[in-house]
Design a protein around this nucleic acid. Structure first.
Length: 490
RNA sequence: GGUCCUGUGGCCGAGCGGCUAGGCAGAGGUCUGCAAAACCUCGUACAGCGGUUCGAAUCCGCUCGGGACCUCCA
């Protein structure tokens, strides 16, 4: 499907339009995604962004690109808040819990990896940490300073936004004007070190009680909040690279600052295509750590929460997320998840039937058209909801072949199977859900169903139905079909 | 307050000038001892009011709702 490769268009936040994707170097893609801050558990909103970009990564791979996918781990450097005078987030929590900062980082990093693997995310090619790239960050500060876009103040180094804006456009990504930004700035304490309230820290002088700090030409301190992504993306993907992704809430100021830092240090705009994934909402509001409006992956999976009526398999959740476009907000609710759960099993049923579908001399539908529709959907800015709709069209066709109202040739069947599997499993990243095996329950059920079958053979419907009803109350569903009796836990 | 996004049938969610997705729920049917499941068939909805147009859910204006960013956040 190499011909489809040149038809991918991506919505570029920088231009505000869909653009045909052309990598800097034919056949290769550099992809950078802002990763998590590992000072607490990732919540589902975080997960949505990473799942969205996992899908992007998977589709680019499917198109045959060689991709270097870099996603950082922020284990230092983010400020707690202004009142804390620039205290490092990780250090703050460490003191509260009497743990080493790196102990916390380790704990939450492991949790992050475990969580994403439950959602069947592929690992990135490189997952660099901020603390592992202090030298690169110091070098970048120095470069920006040498180029005249930063100044030192009390051992801290700040980016000079107004100076940068004279020849560049600070605000080009978030579509803001510097005048509006200045007028909208609140006057806060502790900003007297800065020439302008818009200036942001590249390097912060650390207070004595600060735990995570490193020596630098300016002070013993720690890097600014936006610097790590610039330093690490430059190191691993180059001064200019293809795609930078992240959550919508990082657009300003984080990504705006990254553009400024990159441009100020190298003279080149660092990113060709900016992609932003939209927020996951809960009760109509953005999921957020700070407001407490969150749901953790484990709470979702176990059902141990006040928001949803039961637990959901992470793959069902992934499917649910894929039913919405990555640039739209998506609201979490039991009703919506229940619908996704049923839809998902319908899709899986279709795929299973396809495996052993009987073939005829010719096909009653144009299978190539169906497959083209998959590519067209994905090539239109990764439109997974349309892709899923088209997959359901394919399922309907498969069911019709299965019940004899349509036909498919052997060749088409093999083609369809290959592509449906590719889009469902490789690209959407879904997997078949295995029912957990419970051997003692299996044995009991074998016996119970044997007894029920005996009753049925004797046309003792009362007994047969009673067994079925009691099992149903115990959340075990019994289904009689021509092929025999099956059961499943609900 | 500033900047921007958004409002689609009972629910979720695509589409973004004409051909009017998809899933769930609901209705009818096939199958079945009955049921369930499964499968098939069925839905003309686009916040309100104006305007542009041969034609608008889709463009423009206003009104009313919801949300994001402007402060750490995916």
């Amino acid at each position: 499907m190499a011909n489809k490769k040149n038809e991918l268009s991506i919505y570029n936040s920088l231009s505000g339009e869909k653009e045909i994707f052309k990598p800097l170097k034919e056949g290769f893609v550099g992809l950078y995604v802002c990763g998590p801050t590992v000072y607490s558990y990732v919540h589902l909103g975080n997960c949505r962004t990473f799942i969205s970009f996992d899908m992007v990564y998977r589709y680019l791979k499917h198109l045959g690109y060689t991709i270097r996918y870099v996603r950082n781990i922020t284990d230092a450097g983010h400020l707690e808040n202004d009142a804390e005078e620039g205290e490092d987030k990780i250090a703050k929590k460490a003191r509260l819990e009497q743990l080493e900062p790196m102990e916390i980082v380790q704990q939450y990093t492991i949790n992050f990896h475990e969580t994403l693997s439950k959602f069947n995310n592929l690992p990135p090619s490189i997952e660099p940490t901020a603390t592992g790239h202090i030298i690169e960050q110091i070098e970048m500060v120095q470069k920006i300073k040498d180029n005249g876009f930063a100044y030192e103040s009390n051992g801290s180094v700040y980016f000079d936004v107004e100076k940068y804006n004279k020849k560049n456009y600070y605000g080009e990504l978030s579509k803001r004007k510097i005048e509006d930004l200045i007028s909208g700035t609140r006057s806060l304490d502790g900003q007297n070190e800065k020439k302008s309230p818009l200036d942001f820290a590249l390097w912060k002088n650390a207070k004595p009680e600060h735990i995570m700090k490193w020596p630098s030409p300016w002070s013993v301190g720690f890097p600014g909040w936006h610097l790590e992504c610039s330093a690490m993306s430059t190191k691993y993907l180059g001064e200019e690279f293809d795609i930078h992704g992240g959550g919508m809430d990082l657009k300003f100021p984080h990504h705006e600052c990254e553009i400024a830092q990159g441009t100020a240090s190298t003279g080149k705009k660092p990113v060709r295509y900016w992609m932003h994934a939209n927020m996951l909402t809960l009760n109509g509001k953005k999921m957020s750590k700070s407001t407490g409006n969150t749901l953790l992956p484990n709470e979702l999976i176990s059902g141990d929460n006040d928001v949803l009526e039961k637990g959901y398999n992470p793959i069902v959740v992934r499917f649910f997320m894929m039913q919405a476009h990555y640039r739209s907000t998506l609201d979490f609710s039991s009703e919506a998840l229940n619908a996704a759960e049923k839809g998902f099993s319908r899709l899986m049923d279709g795929i299973n039937i396809l495996k052993n579908l009987k073939t005829s001399d010719q096909s009653s539908q144009d299978v190539k058209d169906i497959i083209d529709s998959f590519y067209d959907a994905m090539n239109d800015d990764f439109n997974t909801p349309i892709l899923i709709a088209n997959l359901f069209d394919a399922v309907k066709y498969i069911q019709n072949v299965n019940n004899g109202t349509s036909t498919i040739s052997k060749q088409d069947k093999e083609l369809l199977e290959k592509e449906v599997n590719a889009f469902t499993f490789d690209i959407l990243g879904l997997t078949e859900i295995q029912n957990e095996q419970n051997s003692s329950l299996d044995k009991v059920m074998e016996l119970v169903l044997k007894m029920r079958q005996k009753a049925r053979d004797e046309k003792d419907w009362d007994t047969a139905d009673e067994i079925r009803d009691v099992l149903n109350d115990a959340r075990i569903e019994v289904k009689d079909s021509k092929e025999g009796v099956t059961w499943m836990t609900k």
